[in-house]
Design a protein around this nucleic acid. Structure first.
Lengths: 239, 239
DNA sequence: TGCAAAAGGATTGTCAACAATCATCGAGAA
DNA sequence: TTCTCGATGATTGTTGACAATCCTTTTGCA
């Protein structure tokens, strides 16, 4: 679900969703300058609604606007991703602890069914993380909803999740992580069933910090290989 | 400090700061409809910049905008304040734990000096919480900065603190809470000096949850007395 | 040849008018 | 009397043009 159902609304809203998708998928690359006139013409709208859309994107931290200097797509460097996962660990941990005491039995049951559906999809597609990725957001989103804390829900769903999707789109090959993640999700649901908020928070924090550790290590390898190829090509080309 | 120094910038920015102040001080009351044309004329600007200002205020959760229905000042009901303090406890607790390992000795020293200055002001004015209130924000703001987590800093300083100021402006008579709060601040600094992140987080969380408990009890009394006067007037007026 | 300053172009900020949508009020019929 | 439907007014969404600001390039001077 994740609030992508009806792009019908004001022109600014539809432009906002289109821009969001373009940034997450990499169609608009990091650090790229966003020209208002060009984008407005491209989407067939005036500059007014487009500026409103850019403001919304700024709220989601997908673009950074500087007065008189325009808007640029955010650059997801390692430091920012580390900050993001640290904040996410704190917020989702809290959401999980609160949800353990506030979710209804029916909601927890639905959550378990969701996991079983994920398991089926994983077994069927055998590695097609793509559907699973969105499903993972569904899982975390449902828990956020279960906290019954509207401010927390807004922060997670409205501001952080888009950035997370952007992170994942880049680091999309961590299929090794899928099955352990599913198992961790199951344990979290178990803790929710037991109404053990403390345990649920600990498991969620471990789940998220583990995900970050995995991504971080992958970025290390990525960076190393890049450095190697760089030095090699530099040595090879000579100049 | 708290970034209120130079309202000079784009027209939208100055309108944003003026509107923020007007909402926090209660000049614009809760739930009030914000007419774009009226406000624009009142501030001597066009509707474009004013809409931008409203969008910024929406980001700070000071107003709620609904498409085709306009913007209204947020209504700080008890549930929302509870949500706010719960999120704040998680975020500032995390900030405190991280700051314990990342702040420099000089920064922690400055923090201690800040507390001594607060103590002097409290003793001098003897209950003038007003300057102390901003000083309190300075304390928490400095710790947020000490976390070196830009996303966390943005969330706390840019989005939550204005709402907190709004809360305080309403519940401005809790002078009994000042001295204990100062003492708690001192203990937090002690934990920072000892580089004990876990203890620092626990102390900060206790500090915040205590503040919420105090406000909550005060609202209970407030509500009770309101209910009494309401029933009494209802009974008296007869009708 | 290198640097600095000014002119030019491009981009953003701002404004006023137009169109679309929603809320309110009143009239008419059951 | 009450409910529904329609018209009117007000408010928001949108557009295009104008003004202010910044970046780039070019020209002049050391």
């Amino acid at each position: 679900m994740l609030a992508l159902h009806t792009p019908e609304g004001t022109l600014a809203d539809v432009a906002s969703t289109r821009l969001t998708q373009a940034i997450i998928t990499g169609e608009l690359i990091q650090g790229q300058k966003l020209n208002e006139s060009d984008l407005a013409e491209r989407y067939g709208i005036g500059r007014g609604p487009l500026r409103e859309a850019l403001r919304q994107l700024e709220g989601m931290r997908l673009v950074k606007r500087i007065p008189h200097a325009g808007a640029r797509v955010v650059t997801l460097d390692r430091e920012m991703m580390a900050d993001l996962y640290a904040v996410r660990e704190a917020l989702e941990g809290m959401a999980c602890r609160t949800a353990a005491t506030r979710m209804t039995d029916a909601e927890i049951g639905t959550l378990r069914l969701l996991l079983e559906k994920h398991a089926e999809q994983i077994e069927a597609t055998d590695g097609q993380i793509y559907v699973q990725s969105e499903g993972d957001f569904d899982f975390h989103y449902q828990i956020a909803l279960g906290s019954r804390n509207q401010m927390l829900i807004d922060l997670l769903a409205g501001e952080l999740y888009q950035l997370l999707r952007m992170c994942r789109y880049r680091t999309s090959r961590l299929s090794k992580r899928i099955l352990p993640a599913l198992q961790q999700h199951r344990h979290i649901v178990d803790a929710l069933v037991a109404r053990d908020g403390e345990l649920a928070e600990i498991l969620m924090r471990r789940h998220i910090s583990g995900a970050w550790k995995s991504i971080s290590e992958m970025m290390d390898e990525e960076h190393d290989s890049n450095t190697i190829t760089y030095t090699r090509s530099k040595t090879a080309s000579g100049s």
